[in-house]
Design a protein around this nucleic acid. Structure first.
Lengths: 208, 208
DNA sequence: AAGAAAAAATGACCGCGGTCGAAATTTCTC
DNA sequence: GAGAAATTTCGACCGCGGTCATTTTTTCTT
């Protein structure tokens, strides 16, 4: 039983996230204080910490919601039988555009996402990863069935390869080594390379 | 002229870094305050900010020194004509072990390194990257000359592929998806895959 | 329904990263 | 070498993230 308490908890958590969406969106992450957040959510400052352990955890939850939205938007669009290259490119470029739209924001998100604090909400983290994989793994296995990708490889590994290159792209943009308008070109080149392989071999190359 | 002032500046900067080495090393990054650092360096708190813009910038400079040391140690050891796989594996695993020795530490370093603040000391950042590339690029070009890697690819791209996978490894360890004792196995597998390529093809594979 | 126990909310408080204007030091000018 | 100008040092101060003892609310017990 004791459903009253649980209801309230859910409501409060939602209220905090709603406040985050409004305030982070309007003033940015840095310029929003926990106290403002609490006020906007109609609770006391200390109460916030009953729902999130750190400020960045709130950001994380916030971004996760946004991400899910991005993914949902994308779900319909991609053509299931496009070459694997085009499909993963579309997927990661959508994310790239979102992440880099507000750079300071994206930076913090990536920092928390890629190198999370050890005591991070285990559930949260996993949920995000699951969401991710649910989108990308089917694309990969389908390509394997089609004979486009090596069937003996673990789809998770393949996913890792693409994700790794996506990370490098974001990194090199943040480090100003790649201008934003060349992001897609660069990612396409790297994806092509990983698909074809780095080693020399005799099979005919598609081009160049 | 005005050499007195410049001398002093250099001395002070060194003093701060020395203090950082001692205090970060002994008490960790989080438990060391700027005030302690300043006291240890024999200067006032505010003065520190004449040399570094943020605390994490000090960490970065500190780690850079450590990194250089690691790389120097490594420089002699690797056999120039080992297969490319073995050479890059040795290189990145050395770094991996250093980074993960003190997890909280390594996390912050990676966060700053991979997703730097936009106003970051441009010189510092570049210097670190240069250092990096100076180590790894020769290994790659040699492998290209030997005919082990495709010569038409930009060595920087190839470097990016390996680095990307290294990043993913660190990530998946921090996210507790890969146990530390399987790190090397995992990295070897991923490196092998990127070298061979993800696509299906007819050339004989080395194994499996 | 009353009182005990458990859980959650609260805001005063703390510690530290970073700022700033005043003071000290160095350099420049004549 | 005296005084002006420029640069550097400094620590009191500010703001915010996060903690904690206390109070309030909810649930359990009989």
């Amino acid at each position: 039983m004791s459903t009253v308490r649980e209801e309230k908890k859910k409501t409060t958590k939602k209220a905090i996230l709603q406040a985050a969406i409004r305030l982070f969106g309007k003033n940015g992450y840095k310029n929003t204080t926990i106290e403002q957040l609490a006020k906007e959510a109609g609770i006391g400052k200390g109460t916030v910490y009953g729902y999130f352990n750190t400020k960045s955890e709130i950001l994380y939850a916030f971004c996760e919601d946004e991400m899910e939205y991005i993914h949902q938007q994308l779900a319909g669009k991609s053509n299931q039988d496009d070459p694997i290259l085009e499909q993963v490119l579309t997927f990661f470029m959508a994310e790239f555009h979102y992440i880099t739209k507000n750079p300071g924001f994206g930076r913090l998100f990536m920092q928390e996402m890629i190198f999370p604090k050890p005591n991070f909400q285990q559930g949260q983290q996993d949920k995000a990863v699951q969401n991710y994989l649910a989108m990308i793994i089917p694309i990969i296995t389908r390509a394997q069935e089609r004979g486009e990708l090596r069937a003996e490889l673990d789809p998770l590994d393949i996913c890792g390869h693409f994700y790794a290159l996506y990370l490098i792209l974001v990194h090199s943009c943040y480090a100003k080594m790649t201008p934003y308008d060349q992001a897609e070109t660069t990612l396409r080149r790297l994806f092509t390379q990983v698909i074809e392989g780095l080693q020399t071999h005799q099979t005919s190359r598609s081009k160049v």
